[in-house]
């Protein structure tokens, strides 16, 4: 016996795919004569009733608190991963930089005496430059101490220390993982 389209109609959704009155009548007629479809229809009625009355199962008490704990662990893990990524990035950058420098210095390495004299010359230049800078700063400071009143110095240092504290606090707030509270 051909069970189509009756089987399709049997399992069709009454809301999304409603049957026409003619289809319903044809289905009923088929069910009267086909035992296989009739048993399927009965089975489906029982199953559907079970599904429709199936209760909603909830988790153990304290689900939200457990989720918050898990979120904190996740944040800590993310924080650690970001730090590792940053460290990796810095190491990779430094490696690249030193490799480039090494490549640039390769001709010098082939002639060490040139490299040595260049180093000595650069060192002397550096010391000369530092000495010149020191003299300039000292001249500037001696000029300023006379020109700016002592009160302004105190105020300036006070503001500077406040800014340092603010910087440290913001750094801590920004780098600490967020904590979710109920």
């Amino acid at each position: 016996m051909n069970h189509q389209p009756y089987e399709d109609w049997l399992f069709a959704d009454p809301i999304e795919e409603p049957l026409t009155p003619q289809q319903q009548a044809d289905l009923q007629a088929h069910l009267l004569e086909c035992e296989s479809c009739r048993s399927l229809a009965v089975a489906w009625q029982v199953v559907e009733a079970d599904l429709r009355t199936g209760d909603m199962i909830g988790p153990r008490a304290g689900f939200t608190a457990r989720w918050e704990e898990r979120l904190e662990i996740e944040h800590a893990r993310l924080h650690r991963r970001q730090s590792l990524a940053m460290l990796g990035f810095v190491i990779a950058g430094l490696t690249l930089l030193f490799t480039s420098l090494l490549l640039l210095a390769m001709p010098l390495l082939n002639a060490p005496e040139v490299w040595l004299w260049t180093g000595v010359y650069q060192g002397i230049q550096l010391v000369d430059n530092l000495r010149a800078m020191q003299e300039s700063v000292l001249k500037l400071l001696s000029g300023l101490t006379g020109a700016v009143p002592r009160v302004w110095w105190v105020l300036g240092l006070g503001v500077l220390s406040q800014l340092v504290v603010l910087w440290i606090v913001s750094l801590r707030v920004l780098t600490n993982p967020r904590r979710v509270t109920r």
Binding site: M56, I57, G58, P59, F63, W67, E68, V180, T181, R182
Partner: peptide
């Protein structure tokens, strides 16, 4: 905290779906 409210509100439907799918309380959690 707003997301915590969402967790509180939807914990049962989400857990129920997971439990019906996985058939195990621990896995569902």
């Amino acid at each position: 905290q707003a997301f915590t409210q969402l967790v509180e509100h939807f914990q049962n439907p989400v857990y129920n779906l997971c439990y019906r799918m996985l058939n195990n309380a621990e896995d569902a959690e």
